[in-house]
Amino acid sequence: MRRLKPFFTFGLLMAVFMLSGCSDMIVLDPKGPVGAEQRDLIMYSIWFMLFILLVVYALTAFIVYKYRDRKNHKGYDPDNEGSHLLETIWWIIPIIIVIALSIPTVKSIYSLEGPPEESKDQKPLVIHATSVNWKWVFSYPEQDIETVNYLHIPEDRPVLFKLTSADSMASFWVPQLGGQKYAMAGMETELYLQADEQGTYEGRNSNFTGEGFTNHTFDVMAMSDAEFEKWASETKADAPELSKGQYDKLMLPGHVKQMTFSSTHLDWVDHAKNPEYALDARERLGYEEKLPHSKAGKEEKKKREEEMKKLEESESHGDSHAH
């Protein structure tokens, strides 16, 4: 037991040291009601877990210390094979804990399916988020504008994201606004988020999608309603239209910088209904995925990157309005 002591102390110190940094961790520092509800649930469960750990550790320490093999050993009872009372106790206590955790969990699961309670009477802003390796395309059907790799949203108003993917299964996640949901080709999933504070939040795909996965990210800028309306109408007026040719190039695997357009791809394709579109576009451009470690694969990658550069240049006109 004496030998176990430094170990427990170390663990305890580590826990204290790290818990003290809690408020800095972005999941526990939400900027909207969805994230806040999840933070509260997480904190609620952490107290239960700490209690369980405390009970198990205290019991382990006591038993291991008291019944270690030594001189003058007392209380040895080799045939003690069980106790109905004790066993009933530790069947019932976990059951109670599970019930105590289930109730708020189920409540939250149901409430997260809709817009946040506090803004139920507001009409949510609808944004289609489409993942394509390794970019995010955001379409605002009402405003009839489209952005790539960044989003503007008004604060204090629920946003309904309609998620889909042009190829790999991705997961749309803005940790400070709330939990994630998958974006899948041939499917449409819905996610409500809301920002209560202005600012720029990092968003990303969190589901592995291959080589460019690490930089499969986007920025969310939350601003006042007036600012948002102004941005939307200016974008509609000034940004270039999205051509089918440009959109085809977006379907190539690769990264692009942030882009802005004054029309949306929803005019001609909805990936939730047509999962083959991206592959067809790649075929139209004569692109074929090659073995990554082969010479052909390396050449193909270079070609792809050049295409992406050209695509970015073709849109440069709209760039000044992005920020």
Binding site: V27, G35, E37, Q38, L41, I42, S45, L101, T105, S108, I109, L112, S171, W173, P175, G178, G179, Q180, K181, S206, N207, F208
Partner: peptide
Amino acid sequence: MAAADYQYHN
């Protein structure tokens, strides 16, 4: 706890 898992997942 699914509602919290949306934040832990991946």
